[in-house]
Amino acid sequence: MNKSLVLAAIVAAVALAACGKKEEVVAPAPAPSVVVVPAESPSASAAAAAATGAASAATGAASAAADSANAAVSAATDAASAAGSAATSAGAAASAAK
């Protein structure tokens, strides 16, 4: 009896497996890609010209800042030299006073 029951279960499982339908999944075709290249408008040209002008102004400002920095370095060097000379003179005067 147990063998009959096991055999019947196996036959039923095989029958159900054979009768089952396998569904195929169909993937949709990809949409064709479209590349849109916008035409250059007058406002884009004006914006490009403004950007070029701004870059030129920034370059000029950076150059002026570099010139100012060089002048400041020169002034500081001159001041340090003068301070060194003053210290030497003060030392000589203190030695002479002894």
Rank of each mutant, 00 (worst) to 15 (best):
M1K: 11
S4Q: 15
L5S: 10
L5M: 10
L7K: 11
A9T: 01
A9C: 03
I10W: 07
A12M: 07
A12P: 01
A12N: 05
A13M: 11
V14Y: 07
A15I: 02
A15Q: 04
A15S: 04
A15H: 00
A15M: 07
L16Q: 05
A17E: 06
A17Q: 07
A17F: 15
A18C: 05
C19P: 02
G20V: 14
G20C: 14
K22P: 07
E23T: 04
E24Y: 01
E24S: 05
V25E: 14
V26F: 08
A27E: 15
P28Y: 02
A29M: 09
A29G: 02
P30I: 00
A31L: 14
A31T: 09
P32M: 03
P32C: 00
P32D: 06
S33T: 14
V34S: 06
V35N: 11
V35P: 03
V36H: 13
V36T: 08
A39C: 01
E40Q: 10
E40M: 06
S41Q: 15
S41G: 03
P42L: 05
S43R: 14
A44V: 01
S45H: 14
A46N: 11
A47G: 04
A48V: 02
A48N: 12
A49R: 15
A49N: 10
A51W: 10
T52C: 08
G53Q: 15
A55R: 14
S56R: 15
A57N: 12
A57V: 01
A57Y: 09
G60R: 13
G60D: 15
G60M: 09
A62R: 00
A62W: 04
A64S: 08
A64M: 03
A64R: 08
A65P: 03
A65I: 01
A66H: 02
S68I: 01
A71G: 05
A72T: 10
V73T: 15
A76H: 11
D78G: 13
A80P: 08
A80L: 13
S81C: 10
A82L: 14
G84A: 10
G84L: 09
G84E: 12
S85H: 08
A86N: 10
A86S: 07
A87C: 01
A87W: 06
T88L: 05
T88S: 08
S89F: 00
A90P: 06
A90R: 10
A90V: 02
A90I: 02
G91S: 13
A93C: 03
A93T: 03
A94T: 05
A94S: 12
A94F: 04
A94D: 07
A96F: 01
A96Q: 08
A97R: 06
A97G: 00
A97S: 02
K98F: 06
K98N: 12
